[in-house]
């Protein structure tokens, strides 16, 4: 195509230059994601005070729930038959899973903004999956607050909880936290996908997020039969931390489901994550770039 160049337009030819047509290499999606993520991290670490501020904000937000649960157990000694150490472990597993969701995948929260402001156009002009670009759009420093508080509470709770820690249970704990994070991410991706039609899903996502945060630290039994089933099959809160926690604490007999269900999050997590991703890709076909 370069050799057809000269004849097309009668602009005075400047000094002789070679046409610019470089050979482009293939770029793997993972590499593209990392390139974008590294840039976002660079921005975040350039604004150190904002990083600290926002991380502290997240710690305060999650910490207020911790304080609430602490005061509650201080007065009542147990909730739904679970004592302080058990609830603390549940809280920590939930928060760590939340961090697994927010650290790498937290940027789903900007989707409304990207769509309504037309910035989603920009994602579609690049040779990278818009979904990956969304996840790397900016790095939310608050997620580092979630992660730090989660790890600290987990280490403390692991000692308070009546669990016999063996290499096996530790591996199960780690895997199950990752799976819990994938559950939450999958749900948020699915909600994000509604943005392409509804334009505003922010309230919905915040509602789900705070419901997970505020009602995650309780054994599911407190919500009664209907509540437990709803928080398992409608809003999959149970898979994030409660079900695996019953396995670790030897409390599977209190489940409404067979005891095996306590291990199900290892499969449900990846499954929901994939389903959420597919929902996003599917709904993104309805993207109507705003005028202008």
């Amino acid at each position: 195509m370069a050799d057809e160049a000269g004849e097309a337009v009668g602009v005075a030819a400047p000094a002789v230059r070679a046409p610019w047509r470089p050979q482009l290499q293939e770029v793997s999606p993972l590499r593209a994601w990392w390139v974008l993520m590294a840039a976002s991290l660079k921005v975040v670490f350039a604004y150190r005070s904002n990083l600290v501020n926002t991380a502290l904000g997240s710690v305060a937000l999650q910490g207020s729930q911790l304080l609430f649960v602490g005061v509650l157990l201080h007065r009542f000694e147990e909730v739904g038959g679970w004592g302080f150490g058990e609830v603390a472990l549940l809280f920590a597993m939930r928060l760590c899973a939340h961090a697994v969701c927010t650290v790498p995948f937290g940027q789903h929260s900007v989707i409304d903004f990207l769509i309504n402001e037309g910035d989603y156009d920009r994602l579609l002009l690049r040779p990278v999956s818009p979904f990956l670009q969304l996840l790397a759009w900016r790095f939310n420093p608050g997620s580092l607050g979630d992660l730090s508080l989660g790890v600290v509470v987990l280490v403390v709770a692991a000692q308070l909880a009546p669990v016999d820690w063996t290499p096996g249970t530790v591996v199960f704990l780690v895997l199950t936290i990752v799976a819990g994070g994938l559950v939450e991410a999958g749900v948020q991706f699915a909600l994000s996908s509604l943005s392409f039609r509804l334009r505003a899903t922010w309230s919905l996502k915040v509602t789900v997020d705070t419901t997970f945060a505020d009602f995650g630290p309780y054994p599911l039994g407190v919500f009664g039969t209907v509540g437990s089933l709803a928080l398992t099959f409608v809003l999959p809160l149970a898979f994030i931390a409660y079900l695996p926690a019953t396995a670790l604490l030897g409390r599977t007999d209190e489940l409404l489901l067979p005891a095996r269900a306590a291990y199900s999050s290892l499969a449900v997590g990846p499954l929901l994550f994939w389903a959420g991703y597919r929902a996003f890709v599917h709904q993104s076909r309805h993207y109507d770039s705003p005028a202008g």
Binding site: Y47, S49, N50, V52, N53, T54, A55, L56, G57, S58, A60, L61, G63, S64, Q65, L67, F68, V71, L72, G142
Partner: peptide, 22 residues
């Protein structure tokens, strides 16, 4: 311009300290 973090801290403190949670 970095009010986001301060607002989150405020919100968390207000929620707990106002007695709205417990």
């Amino acid at each position: 311009l970095e009010v986001g973090g301060a607002l989150m801290v405020y919100r968390a403190v207000a929620q707990f300290a106002s007695g709205a949670l417990i």
